[in-house]
């Protein structure tokens, strides 16, 4: 299935900011996170087609996944 993965802020460092990719059926958000070698505990906001999603949310054909790092400093 065809999925667009968008990375924001610090997740772009050394990675492709916007990537259209072919993924096997049944791929979940956490599989994409692992594939991108992003530490799971650094994931802040997960938006799937502009709606909140979870790490175990399953992706489907045409999805647009956006990953934002956890930011908490002041």
């Amino acid at each position: 299935m065809h999925v667009t993965v968008k990375l924001f802020a610090g997740f772009r460092n050394g990675r492709i900011p916007i990537e259209e990719t072919e993924l096997p059926e049944g791929t979940r958000v956490i599989d994409v996170v692992n594939r991108q070698t992003i530490p799971v505990n650094e994931v802040g906001i997960i938006m799937l087609n502009n709606r909140h999603a979870k790490l175990d949310t399953e992706l489907v054909q045409g999805d647009i996944l956006a990953l934002f790092p956890l930011v908490g400093g002041g």
Binding site: A9, G10, V40, N41, E42, V43, G44, I45, I46, H52, K54, L55, P69, L70, V71, G72, G73
Partner: peptide, 19 residues
């Protein structure tokens, strides 16, 4: 609360990236 609904740890990437 919605912004931080997925968090698993206390601090964010500022621990690595500084300010």
């Amino acid at each position: 609360e919605r912004i931080y609904q997925n968090i698993q740890v206390e601090n964010g990437i500022e621990q690595k990236q500084g300010n």
